[in-house]
């Protein structure tokens, strides 16, 4: 009897361990797959030509695989989105965490989580029909689909992540700090920005890292508004991001072209790992601080 119970315990323990290890297996699988299939094309094309080449013509008679345009587009696009989205998100977060009355805060938090839940294709659709024609008439360019449209869509899409993480960080600031500052004669607004914000800076940095990760990784919304021409980026020109470069050609690719798409995914993965590492670093810092 006792032996049987012990056996069951061991089996169940092993089962739960396996379930836990599946997560690890998934990440290993994804990493190994990407590295193995990504390196094939890089080896064939040459790392320098691949990363620094400015011409992408995967289906030409003499194909050329340079992904510098995609890398730069992803960096510019994400940086631009942060430039617009970060101040808006930051100030909204400070207001929500510190200044807003409870009822207002509840409503706005709900609106923000609604923004977070809207599917990226819906953002893309609204961008296609509102933003793209808007940019065309406002700036008088022949086609509104391009880097600027993508930057604006991305800046809206990263808002919820930036706001949520910053609000959590700001709310975790000990009340004593703020009370001390108020008692010394600082106004409430001065207290928020000169005491609470510096105290929550790790968490806010984590929000930035998360926003960057979201921005670099977004594919569908960007694909619908960026135009997808494989040229070097400029603000009003049609551009292709790392994510959309993978998605745009995957359906009909083969041979070296397909392997090159895996290499692009590997480069994208590398960027994501960088932003993840930054995120973890800052989160650890905010737990300690």
């Amino acid at each position: 009897m006792k032996k049987k119970t012990q056996l069951i315990e061991t089996v169940v323990h092993g089962l739960f361990l396996c379930l836990g290890l599946i997560t690890v297996a998934c990440v290993l699988l994804i990493t190994v797959y990407l590295i193995v299939s990504g390196l094939l094309a890089i080896k064939e094309i040459g790392l320098k030509e691949f990363i620094l080449g400015t011409k992408w013509a995967s289906t030409a008679a003499e194909p050329s695989f340079g992904i510098l345009p995609f890398i730069l587009t992803s960096i510019y696009g994400t940086a631009g989105a942060m430039l617009i989205g970060l101040p808006v998100g930051f100030f909204t977060a400070v207001y929500l965490a510190k200044a807003a009355p409870a009822a207002v805060k509840k409503v706005i938090i709900n609106l923000v989580s609604l923004l977070a839940g809207i599917p990226s294709v819906v953002y893309g659709l609204v961008g296609m029909l509102v933003l793209v024609p808007g940019i065309r008439t406002f700036f008088g360019v022949p086609d509104g689909a391009g880097l600027l449209a993508a930057i604006i869509v991305l800046s809206v899409m990263i808002l919820p992540s930036v706001i949520n993480v910053s609000v959590t960080a700001l709310e975790a600031v000990p009340k004593e700090y703020e009370d001390a500052s108020l008692a010394l004669g600082a106004t409430p607004t001065e207290t928020y920005f000169r005491v609470s914000v510096p105290a929550a800076k790790s968490g806010i940095a984590a929000a930035v890292a998360l926003g960057v990760g979201r921005g670099i990784g977004e594919a569908m919304a960007v694909m619908m508004v960026a135009g997808n021409a494989a040229d070097m980026p400029s603000l009003f020109a049609s551009v292709r991001f790392l994510t959309t470069a993978v998605a745009a050609e995957m359906a009909y690719s083969g041979g070296l072209q397909r392997q090159a798409l895996f290499s692009i995914a590997l480069v994208l993965f590398f960027f994501i790992m960088l932003s993840n590492a930054a995120l973890n670093f800052f989160l650890k810092g905010s737990k300690r601080g």
Binding site: V27, G217, A265, F269, I272, N276
Partner: peptide, 18 residues
């Protein structure tokens, strides 16, 4: 395992698709 789960959460969906 927790670190790996965090990594998994940050991977963009295009890569999952691939």
């Amino acid at each position: 395992i927790e670190y790996v789960a965090e990594t998994l959460a940050g991977i963009p969906s295009v890569i999952y698709g691939l």
